[in-house]
């Protein structure tokens, strides 16, 4: 146990003592991850879970419109203005679920970050095991913005296999 504490202390020291040039990650707390939009019936081409980095405003607009692409008449979608130099946007889908009653949301804590990697925790809620449920397939998804920092990769936890998304380095 003492060995492990020593090792963790070494890791903490090495990070706080060696921040990236120009990085203020260690000085200023980053804002929290924020949900831009979520739904249970996202129109996407994925049967399996996916996590995709949305890199600019036009791509965000396409994704948000596509999320509601099954609806007629095509709904007017309010697209938030995102400062992509300060935020990374991730589209996360749980993939196809067999019934209603599934919901994808951020876990608590939702977002943890370091210098080169960050971690976003999500939870796929299931209907109760013994419930009777509507036999319609659902595609829960969530569109999240996370503060950009020195990290270049985000690991998405909570969708079974860990998904890695390369987001580049906006700072």
């Amino acid at each position: 146990m003492a060995d492990r504490l020593l090792i963790l202390a070494l890791a903490v020291l090495s990070i706080t003592g060696c921040t990236l040039p120009g990085s203020n990650a260690a000085d200023t707390p980053l804002p929290a991850a924020q949900v831009i939009s979520s739904a249970i019936q996202c129109n996407g081409a994925e049967r399996q879970p996916v996590a995709i980095h949305i890199g600019n405003q036009p791509q965000l607009e396409r994704v948000m419109k596509r999320m509601q692409g099954l609806i007629l008449p095509a709904p007017v979608v309010q697209i938030p203005e995102i400062d992509f130099s300060r935020w990374h946007v991730l589209y996360i889908s749980s993939g196809q679920q067999p019934t209603a009653g599934y919901l994808l949301r951020l876990a608590e804590p939702a977002f943890e970050t370091g210098h080169s990697e960050a971690r976003l925790n999500v939870i796929l809620e299931h209907p109760p095991a013994d419930a009777m449920v509507a036999a319609v397939l659902t595609h829960p998804c969530v569109l999240v913005k996370i503060p950009a920092n020195s990290y270049s990769t985000v690991e998405i936890h909570g969708l079974g296999e860990v998904r890695k998304v390369t987001v580049g380095n906006a700072m």
Partner: peptide
Amino acid sequence: YLVAGLILAVSACDGNSGNRQPT
């Protein structure tokens, strides 16, 4: 854990980890 900590220490100090290229 020991190796992980050392790797973090090294990578955090190399000045380049923030610009890691995609794999």
